[in-house]
């Protein structure tokens, strides 16, 4: 059989090569087309946000709170920032510590279970968290629409995310480092805090930045836990609703008035810029890390 193959090889080989080249070209053309389609859709989204957002932008937005369906957005900016900070305050310690557990005690069956659950939670729709927050904190605990309910709901969303990024970051740390640390007589706690975390701090930070971006851009978990307020936050953790930027998009786009639409577009622009900046920052810090490593 192989003898026959060899005898007819030149012509068959050429034919096969020509066909292969055609298939290859066709395949790559399809890939390029797919890419062009996505790129145009995404560029169009950015165009919409920038085009309408920039024309709605003015200094007033950053200096005054919303009044009715006009005015500024300072209350919403403040609220978005505070909600996110509060959520991070809760979620980062939980996520990072949980991540350490899953990574460093991973032979444990419990660690497997937690990792599995965290993976699932990262994918659970945010509106389910919103319902959870509404049912438990807003109504059962009687906190009403409030900062606390919003922060905890957001934290529930991003803690599993932090857990997984921390775990992956720790796994990236070479095993030799752990061995060296134990060889020096350090306990597990000391090894984790003094050696491993320091080594992968920048990756964990990247995870925090991305989690910030996620919680800044969320709407669904907040509608039923935080609601909306026309004023600045007054320092109460419970019983007082808080303003936030994505609500302006969700709700004001439904008002008939141009001033409301302008606010919605301005809010969309701010959120988009903020999220893009955070993601870019996260990416840059990761890049710097890899450059340092390879240098």
């Amino acid at each position: 059989m192989s003898a026959i193959d060899i005898r007819y090889a030149p012509a068959a080989f050429e034919r096969r090569q020509r066909r292969n080249a055609r298939v290859s070209a066709l395949g790559w053309a399809a890939c390029a087309l797919a890419f062009a389609l996505l790129a145009s859709a995404l560029l169009d989204i950015l165009f919409l946000v920038f085009h309408r957002g920039l024309s709605a932008l003015n200094l007033q937005l950053f200096l005054t709170p919303t009044s009715g369906i006009g005015g500024g957005l300072l209350n919403a900016i403040e609220g978005s920032v505070l909600l996110t900070l509060g959520a991070l305050l809760l979620a980062v310690p939980i996520g990072v510590l949980g991540g350490i557990y899953v990574s460093e005690y991973s032979r444990d069956w419990l660690a497997h279970g937690v990792r599995f659950v965290a993976d699932v939670l990262v994918g659970v729709p945010s509106i389910v968290f919103g319902l959870f927050g509404y049912l438990t904190m807003v109504t059962a605990l009687d906190w009403h629409f409030s900062m606390a309910a919003g922060c905890i709901t957001l934290a529930l969303m991003i803690a599993p995310y932090m857990l997984r990024t921390t775990e992956l970051a720790l796994r990236g740390v070479p095993h030799e480092l752990r061995e060296a640390s134990y060889a020096l007589g350090a306990g597990q706690a000391a090894t984790v805090t003094h050696v491993l975390l320091r080594e992968c701090a920048s990756r964990v930070l990247t995870g925090i930045l991305l989690a910030t971006a996620i919680s800044m851009g969320e709407t669904a978990p907040l509608i039923y836990t935080v609601n909306w307020s026309n004023y600045y936050w007054n320092g109460h953790l419970t019983h007082e609703p808080v303003a936030y930027l994505t609500y302006v998009i969700w709700s004001f786009i439904n008002e008939p008035f141009a001033s409301a639409h302008a606010l919605a577009y301005a809010a969309a622009l701010m959120i988009t810029l903020f999220v893009l900046a955070l993601t870019l920052l996260a990416r840059l810090s990761l890049n710097r890390l890899t450059v340092r490593r390879s240098a």
Binding site: A213, W250, T272
Partner: peptide, 8 residues
């Protein structure tokens, strides 16, 4: 772009 909020 994967990070753009879904509401956008």
């Amino acid at each position: 772009l994967a990070g753009i909020p879904s509401i956008i």
